[in-house]
Design a protein around this nucleic acid. Structure first.
Length: 746
DNA sequence: GAAGCCCACATTTTT
DNA sequence: TGTGGGCTTC
């Protein structure tokens, strides 16, 4: 029965078999992390833990799906179906739907994607007649997301001194107001954004002892994948559920933490043992993916980071090829070199096209490779860009579905109230929104009862509005008697989508029609699959709940099988290829120019490079160009400092000369048991103190940039300079002679 | 509401 | 460079 345990290495087996308390599995790149997770779940099931009492959280649907199918092979399909296994967002939305009343929502709430959120924020800014230059919707959105992840509700926001100081500093004091309105509008609309799914779960558990108890008792064992990528709320929810019984196993690799810009907190994994003091630590240090050279090169690179859990990753595979660093004179030549290398390697070693990947830091770099590959007829596939569910025609149909499921959904209504065109323009919508805001009701409420809300519209418009609402209402009325697929067909029919789109015979038009058909196909497949599982009546809301949390990574297509893969390094995490080209190894590109000199940010970029290299099984090839066409002009480029971080013995030929950068002195590892707070490591400085009386590490205040920390000091007297990391403005170099820095005592 | 023009802008994005 | 958003114009 436990025969599968023999397929595990000793350290993997130990990690699998420890089920009595908290454990942290530090799983290096290619160390068989998924294998441990899947076998551990199988092991738990075998030891009498019921499937419904296992909670297993992942970040992507893909990861959840893959794990499910692997567990199914061991324990069978029916068991797997009863596991609470899925992404944080999907599992929590399930819980929230069950408990929706407690938090003042209906179980039919719909979900705003990032675009919807941004649109709403933009609307609010416009309604308040604020300057969009100052109140940039994207920035406000990012800030709202950030504070939600930090468990800060609008009520807490206004009380938060630091936040209001920051908003003052940024010249947008009314951010709190926007946030409050956004929050309320979502509530009135019966919608949640992605962050809400986490935050409301936290609030639910925090405010209702009985409910959290229930889930604590239900989830007798909790597993979390990619723990290094969890943000604050996610971490806190795991804590809420696991703190009592402590049966929690988190798996991750601090060296692969690359999502801090999305709120991921590497401290969650570094400090895990502090929160669960009984934690058993397991390290998976054998890499089964890459050659020794690749593993060792990656090790030598990551050693340059200060903050990390000590571990020694090794490979028992062949030594393999050394890593070439190829210099190109232009980005154009870089493309040419990579394309011809691929052709050459394919000929010499019989590789398939799919054995190659080109990884870059920014999507903009893909173009040139696209051209160079196309020129010599190499098939490729580019990841990134618009996902299926973000396409206009799909969002349009989905908006109808959302509106029928939850007519209060503001963004859904706005999107389709005049699409296909039915003479209800922006002015009317603005009037509806104004009345809705005034009475704290949904737009739908006003639109379907214009008289009750004294809506000032002419009779023609009123008629059109009534026709629209009537159509939606009749679809709502049939929603309970039809299954989701039938309803989907009805939507297309009723809304004149056919005439709108099916007439369009341009290639774009045809592809739009195809996309819609694809959506309907997947709807049909969904209904059939659910029915097979014994669910008799599948409603549209069920389908929506599922697809609202899907991304493009979830729609894999078999047709594109044998192609060279092009993607950003971020999206390559978790994947592997025989041969990997990491291109654009240049300063200001990788590490990104947007990263300040702050050591923590450079470390994250270095981890990104680590992720890139460790994708390769057989060959990693690094390229950089001496010049590059960017933002409308040709720039000269210097080779990336990261090239100098790799030990020369793993490289083919000599390293290019890189400048020295003020960075960590001696690499030392992070003691995790006594893990202190994750304060940024201090940079090296040329002198620690100057005549200014300041010293490195001091907190200072600047009249424009607010507070910050002195990173380094240089020069003397009137040339004395300080490098300061401001809390909200990044690193600035300033002449002390001009910049008045006041030291602040903590 | 489509088309055309001008201006600003230029990372990474699991949900 | 090239794209996307906002604006005007027909």
């Amino acid at each position: 029965m436990s025969e599968y345990l023999n397929q595990l290495s000793e350290s993997q087996r130990q990690a699998v078999e420890y089920i009595d308390g908290a454990s942290l599995v530090v799983a290096g790149a290619g160390s068989g992390k998924t294998r441990v997770l899947t076998y551990k779940i199988a092991y738990l099931l075998e030891h009498g833990i019921a499937p419904y009492s296992i909670l297993a959280l992942t970040f992507t649907n893909k990861a959840a799906r893959e794990m499910k199918s692997r567990i199914a092979q061991i324990v069978g399909e029916s068991e797997v179906r009863r596991l609470w296994m899925g992404t944080f967002h999907s599992i929590f939305s399930r819980i929230l739907r069950r408990e929706s009343e407690t938090i003042g929502y209906s179980s039919d709430f719909t979900i705003y994607d990032a675009q919807d959120s941004k649109n709403l924020i933009k609307t609010i800014i416009k309604e308040k007649a604020l300057d969009e230059k100052l109140y940039k919707p994207a920035q406000i959105q990012a800030q709202i997301s950030k504070v939600k992840n930090a468990l800060i509700t609008p009520e807490l926001y206004v009380q938060d001194r630091e936040l209001s100081e920051y908003d003052q500093l940024m010249n947008r004091p009314r951010t709190a107001e926007i946030y409050a309105n956004y929050w309320e509008r979502c509530k009135t609309a019966g919608v949640m954004d992605f962050d809400d799914l986490l935050l409301y779960t936290y609030i639910l558990f925090n405010k209702h002892q009985d409910i959290v108890e229930r889930y604590r008792n239900m989830f007798r064992f909790i597993l979390v994948d990619e723990y290094q990528d969890t943000n604050h709320v996610q971490h806190e929810i795991v804590r809420q559920l696991a703190a009592e019984h402590q049966r929690v196993c988190v798996v991750g690799d601090d060296a692969q933490s690359i999502y801090s810009f999305r709120g991921a907190n590497i401290g969650n994994i570094l400090n895990f043992q502090k929160i669960f003091p009984e934690t058993r630590l397991f390290k998976l240090e054998q890499n089964y993916r890459s050659t020794q050279t690749i593993v060792n090169a990656a090790n030598s690179l990551i050693k340059k980071n200060l903050k990390q859990i000590p571990k020694t990753i090794y490979s028992k595979k062949s030594v393999g090829e050394k890593i070439p660093i190829i210099t190109a004179y232009s980005d154009f030549e870089e493309g040419y070199i990579v394309a011809s290398r691929i052709a050459e390697m394919r000929m010499l070693n019989n590789y398939a096209y799919s054995d190659f990947a080109i990884l870059y830091r920014t999507n903009a770099q893909s173009r040139i490779f696209e051209e160079s590959l196309r020129k010599i007829n190499i098939p490729y596939r580019i990841y990134g860009g618009l996902s299926f569910y973000q396409r206009k025609e799909i969002k349009d149909i989905v908006s109808y579905m959302r509106l029928i499921t939850n007519p209060k959904d503001e963004e859904a209504l706005k999107r389709i109230i005049n699409y296909p065109t039915r003479g209800i323009g922006d002015t009317t919508v603005a009037k509806i929104a104004a009345a809705a805001n005034l009475h704290h009701v949904s737009l739908w409420q006003v639109a379907s009862n214009p008289i009750a809300y004294n809506l000032n519209i002419n009779s023609g418009t009123a008629k059109k509005l009534a026709a629209f609402c009537g159509m939606i209402q009749s679809l709502i009325d049939t929603a309970h008697t039809q299954d989701a697929y039938e309803l989907g067909i009805a939507i297309i029919k009723e809304t004149d989508f056919k005439t709108e789109l099916y007439e369009d015979k341009t290639p774009e038009g045809l592809s739009r029609v195809q996309n819609i058909e694809e959506l309907l196909n997947s709807l049909q497949a969904f209904v059939l699959a659910r029915r097979e599982e014994g669910d008799p009546n599948i409603l549209l809301g069920d389908f929506l709940a599922e697809i609202s949390l899907m991304t493009d990574a979830d729609t894999d297509d078999a047709e594109n099988a044998n192609r060279v893969t092009m993607m950003t390094i971020h999206s390559a995490k978790g994947l592997e290829f025989k041969n990997v080209f990491v291109v654009g190894m240049e300063e200001d590109l990788f590490p990104s120019e947007y990263m300040s000199m702050h050591p923590a940010e450079i470390e994250e970029e270095r981890r990104l490079f680590y992720v890139a290299i460790t994708r390769a099984e057989e060959n990693a090839i690094l390229t950089y160009s001496k010049s590059r066409f960017r933002n409308g002009q040709t720039q000269t480029c210097r080779p990336s400092r990261f090239l100098a971080d790799i030990d020369e013995s793993f490289l083919k030929g000599a390293k290019p000369k890189t400048e020295r950068y003020g960075e960590p002195v001696a690499p030392h590892t992070f003691k995790i048991l006594s893990a202190p707070n994750v304060s940024p490591a201090k940079a090296v400085s040329t002198s620690s103190e100057t005549s200014s009386g300041l010293s490195v590490g001091d907190r200072v205040r600047h009249h424009r940039f607010g507070v910050g920390e002195v990173l380094s000091l240089s020069g003397a007297d009137e040339n004395a300079k300080a490098e300061v990391m401001f809390d909200h403005f990044g690193v600035k170099n300033m002449l002390l002679h001009y910049a008045k820095l006041e030291p602040i005592t903590p």
